[in-house]
Amino acid sequence: MGNETAWQEAAINGRFGGKTIIVTGAGSGIGQATALRVAKEGGRVIAADISKERLDALVEENGGLDLVPVAGDISTEETVAAVVVAAGGRVDALANIAGIMDNFAPIHEVDDAMWERVFRINVTALMRLTRAVVPLMLEAGTGSVVNVASEAGLRGSAAGASYTASKHAVVGLTKNSAVMYGPKGLRFNAVAPGPTITNIEAVWGSQLAAERLGPLMQATVPTPATAAQLAASITFLLSDDGTNVNGAILASDGGWSAL
């Protein structure tokens, strides 16, 4: 009877009814699409983004949804703390979506500023926010974390050295966390997008990369997906629909990784 009641409530409230979900990068692209989908399915969304203007527009344009904006650099402890405070002591799920691209530079052309910026946003920020949220999930005995990796976390031909290394790190953090916290009722998974229509620009800053990767990409890269398609993959893993999925790296790439 209890299970029937739970399913009935889920049907009425949506998959995220009564739940609090943190979404980073919520001001645009995949993060915004995920935040909106979760909110439309009944969730209370703590929407984090570096741009206050984008967050204000998101809230203003979606007045009927439960969106709590937190603006700031998610790689800083101050913003992480603000996100946790906004969650009010309860976090049912976390979507680590905020990220930046590199300039496709191979390792001998990588400069320290690019390397450090890519790792700060793509890896350190993800680690710090997850580190802050996990104790709340452990206390509750349940929780779902979805990290956005990339095709560059699965192969060496999708980006430059900095971005590729950072997304391999995201895959490693995801798998290690799944092993560590699975027995405690927490699930950690990642989605690896292929080309996606977002506001993140890929700039060929290296002649070697253009010569080596350009032809490979022209021959194999599928039609870019929409942010909404990626949000569908992410929300599946965030929700109880992914109940038996832990430690998975879901390639949401139109079949690119199968080539």
Rank of each mutant, 00 (worst) to 15 (best):
108 H>V: 10
137 M>K: 00
157 S>C: 14
45 V>K: 00
113 A>T: 15
90 R>W: 11
81 A>G: 13
58 L>C: 08
115 W>A: 06
160 G>P: 06
165 A>L: 11
69 P>K: 03
128 R>G: 07
84 V>P: 07
120 R>A: 15
111 D>W: 06
60 E>S: 15
93 A>M: 09
93 A>F: 05
165 A>S: 12
63 G>A: 13
40 K>A: 14
138 L>D: 08
74 I>C: 11
150 S>H: 00
160 G>Q: 05
165 A>W: 08
89 G>I: 07
73 D>I: 04
88 G>E: 05
76 T>D: 03
75 S>C: 04
66 D>G: 10
142 T>A: 14
64 G>T: 07
68 V>C: 12
105 A>Y: 09
158 A>H: 12
82 A>T: 07
49 D>M: 06
122 N>Q: 04
62 N>D: 02
45 V>I: 12
71 A>T: 07
137 M>A: 00
150 S>C: 02
90 R>C: 11
89 G>R: 01
156 G>E: 06
37 R>Y: 05
157 S>T: 15
55 L>D: 03
52 K>C: 14
44 R>I: 09
93 A>C: 08
101 M>Y: 15
38 V>E: 04
65 L>I: 06
38 V>W: 03
48 A>T: 10
147 N>W: 02
85 V>Q: 14
116 E>S: 14
127 M>E: 13
162 S>G: 06
105 A>S: 13
91 V>K: 03
106 P>H: 00
40 K>E: 13
161 A>Q: 02
129 L>V: 09
135 P>Q: 05
127 M>Q: 15
140 A>I: 09
163 Y>V: 04
63 G>D: 10
133 V>G: 01
56 D>L: 09
113 A>N: 15
97 I>C: 09
96 N>G: 05
95 A>H: 00
114 M>T: 15
129 L>I: 09
99 G>T: 12
68 V>Y: 12
96 N>D: 07
